[in-house]
Each structure stands twice: as C-alpha cells, then as structure tokens.
Simulated scan of single mutants.
Amino acid sequence: MRKVIASTFLSLDGVMQAPGGPSEDPTGGFRFGGWFTSYFDELLGQAVDKVMADPFDLLLGRKTYEIFAAHWPFIDPDAEYSEITRKFAACRKYVAASPDQPLTWQNSVNLGSNPVSAVERLKREDGPNLLIQGSGQFAQALLAADLIDEITVMVAPVLLGRGKRLFGDSTAPSGFELVDHAVSTTGVTIGRYCRGGEIQTGSFAMPEPSQAERDRQARWAREG
C-alpha cells in the first residue's frame, strides 16, 4: 500500500500559487509570483529534503507538470539542488493531463481520463510513496476523494488575498495529527500532518442554555 503525500508552500490565507517566481504562474492576474523566495533559509531547505528523503514517485497536475518539465530537466545535476534534480529525473511522474498532451519529461505517465481513480489504483500497488507537489486543482480532487495520507505545509507570514489554494470547499472532512513541526528564522511555520482518525467534536456550551440562546438557535434554524 502506497501513501499519497502532499507538500506545499502556503500563505497565511491559504494561497499556494507561484511561490517560486513572477513568471511561474501569473494566471488569473496573480501579481505576487515569487512571494515565498524571501522566506527561504537553511531550515526550510532541510524540511524540503526531509519530504524527499524516502523514495517516491511524483503526482503532478498538468500545469505543475509543465512548470517542472520546463525547469528541472535543464538544471545541471552537479549544481545547486543537484540531489532534487537527480531524484526528479529518476522517479516516475504520474500526470493528470488530457490524453493528447505530450509528456516530454523522461519517465512520465499520463493518468488517463480519470486521474483520481488512477491514483486509487496506484495506492493499492507496491512501490514508493506518491508525492504531490503544487498541483492545486489535482490536490483538491484528491482531498475530495479522501486519498491524501500526509500533508506537509510550510506557511509564510504573508497574506496574498487571492490566488490558487490547496484546500477548497470539497475537501473531505478528516482528522490529522501533527507529527513534526519547526519554525524557520524567517517566521515560516512547518508542520507535517499524518492521518489521525475521525474528527472529534465537543461543546463549550452551558449545560442549560439561556432563553436568549434558545431563541437564537430557533431563529437560525428558521433562517437555514
């Protein structure tokens, strides 16, 4: 059984779009491409290395695949980020793309007409874990299908207002447990979360609600 592991950079308000540069993804008029670069430090580099420490295959949405395929194959494998370059080159890349899209990066596989069902099948197979990078729309589809087992988020102290997000209204409710955390010198909070069972609920309400509270509940029930 393989795990699906998500890892992403986020703003405080949950935006994940174009953290690495102005030309990375300006779709929708996004103005802040490269917003994460000034927060990077040695601790964040170690956190990224930790995400990729174990063998993995990549899960990529179409746009993230195009960004990666235009970048990583052209990086000198002996230069900076050489370890990531070699790992990305060697692993299999499973791509949520249209059937007719050319996949030029070596070891790339099209997930076909139903990428979510394809990931369900991949999870049941033997092999390395499946690491999803970026790919917000694809990640949201996997979250809606309750297929993501582990999430690492690196949250920068910035509000971006608008842009593509990791979590949407269709995310399947699920409990997670914080298993590792750190704070960078630049104020980025790094959290690694694994499956933690069902959501636990409780109540801070008074044992006997006031008449005002009963009236409020009745009014909100009528308002729907």
Rank of each mutant, 00 (worst) to 15 (best):
I151Y: 02
T171S: 09
A182V: 03
A144K: 02
V183N: 01
F167Q: 05
L166F: 05
P173R: 08
E177T: 13
L130Y: 12
N110D: 14
S135L: 06
G175Y: 09
I190Q: 00
D146V: 09
V119T: 14
L122W: 14
Y94M: 13
A141I: 01
L131V: 06
V155S: 02
E198P: 00
A139Q: 04
Q140P: 00
V188W: 01
S113G: 11
S184F: 03
W105R: 09
E125Y: 10
L131S: 09
Q140S: 04
G161S: 11
A156M: 06
I148V: 12
L122P: 10
F138G: 02
V153E: 08
K123W: 14
V109P: 05
G197F: 02
Q140I: 00
T171W: 06
E120H: 10
L147V: 06
L147R: 04
A172H: 15
I132D: 08
L103R: 11
Q140H: 01
D169C: 03
P115I: 15
D149F: 04
T185S: 08
R121N: 15
S174I: 09
Q133E: 13
E177C: 07
W105I: 06
D180R: 06
L178W: 09
M154W: 03
G127H: 13
P173G: 07
F138M: 06
T186A: 05
V183I: 07
A118I: 11
P102T: 11
E120G: 13
V95Y: 11
V179M: 02
V183D: 01
L159P: 02
S135H: 04
Q137C: 00
P102Q: 13
L143P: 00
Q101E: 15
M154K: 05
F176I: 05
L103S: 11
E120Y: 07
T171H: 08
T186C: 06
V188I: 05
L103K: 11
F167D: 04
A97K: 05
F167E: 06
I132F: 08
V188A: 05
P157S: 10
T104M: 15
Q106T: 15
